[in-house]
Nucleic acid binder design. Structure first.
Lengths: 195, 195
DNA sequence: GCTGGAATTGACTATTTAGTCATTTATGTA
DNA sequence: TACATAAATGACTAAATAGTCAATTCCAGC
């Protein structure tokens, strides 16, 4: 019985991911989600008390998966540049492999359907990223910019590159990912102020 | 009478801008828009045959305003760097001065509520930007990246900085804008490949 | 002040919505 | 097999929706 339960819950989350990403939160009815998941309309409410709870649970799950992937094998890198580069690859590759989740996050990260509570809980999963930036500022590798600005630029640039790869479809994806990192690295580090 | 007509149309567009940005397209009812604009529910449909027409007209108008501002005084700059820098300031300052329009564009640029026709018409207003990037590639100032990647990175970085300024509220906004340009310039130009 | 046509109105409709709940089905245990 | 409990169902409801349209208001020119 436990098995079946998890199946249905997962099916509902997957259906919600697809439909919310395609048509938005208000553009998707709970009936559509249930149908896509292959369950009755009432079943959705056995797992999620409201539509809002559903999207918040989904958002949390996806962001958690991303943060987990983002930090993978970062600390085993030798140089600071290699650590940042590893994180860049983790981010971009996850985005390419998980288009739907990637677009979902981008669409709902500042949506009023996501509660501030969810946002706070999710934020905690990303402290290691903030810490890595602080490390770079402390050791002088990163330029003298506010930490907040650096984290934002790094993260949003990764989003830009994923979108670029998915939408403009360059022949050589790996090249595009590496180019993206070059731009970000030379932009955010300190040792290039020829001007 | 003509005056009154234009007033109501403008009021409807302004109300739609506010509500769509706050609550999204499907999250906003036509009745809410009419109420916010101070007109009867039927009046909206005198100016816009459907809700879709309304948001498309609005999107077009806002994007046109942005493109117009973006190109202002760019050609009178002497160096290539100064041209790009002027464009950067135009973009970021417009975003800060027009928060609602700025967030509206960000939210709906890839929304299915905006038709591909609207998107195509809007695109034409931005050829001058693409041309400026081509110029930089030709004269060797920009790094050897695909033009599409450069335009995207430049534009998205401006969005990132506007968001950073509006959300993180740094004490010195002008400093933040200039920092943002430094990051983008050193990231996208060729003369910094110390690596 | 009168008149004709355009602009404005809001009550109205057919449809869709999130969420409920009494009933039915499935499952583990003995 | 029989029982107890948890899960699944879908018809149902009250509220909200985009868009219509007959009636009203407005105003320029006479």
């Amino acid at each position: 019985m436990k098995k079946q339960v998890e199946n249905k819950k997962a099916a509902l989350l997957q259906a919600a991911l697809k439909l919310f990403t395609e048509k938005g939160f208000h553009g998707t009815s709970t009936a559509q989600i249930s149908k896509e998941a292959g369950v009755a309309t009432g079943t959705l409410f056995n797992y999620f008390p409201t539509k809002e709870h559903l999207i918040n649970d989904l958002y949390f799950e996806v962001k958690e998966e991303l943060s987990s992937r983002m930090g993978q094998d970062v600390q085993i890198q030798k140089t600071y540049r290699e650590k940042l580069r590893k994180m860049w690859y983790n981010l971009v590759e996850w985005g390419i492999e998980n288009q739907e989740k990637f677009h979902f996050v981008g669409q709902f990260c500042s949506s009023p359907s996501i509660t501030s509570h969810t946002r706070e809980v999710v934020m905690e999963e990303y402290v290691f990223f903030h810490d890595l930036v602080m490390e770079g500022l402390a050791n002088g590798e990163l330029g003298d910019y506010p930490a907040e600005m650096i984290t934002t630029m790094f993260y949003q640039s990764s989003r830009t590159i994923v979108d670029y790869i998915l939408y403009s479809e360059p022949q050589d994806r790996d090249r595009a990912i590496e180019n993206g990192f070059q731009v970000v690295w030379s932009g955010l580090t300190r040792n290039n102020l020829l001007f």
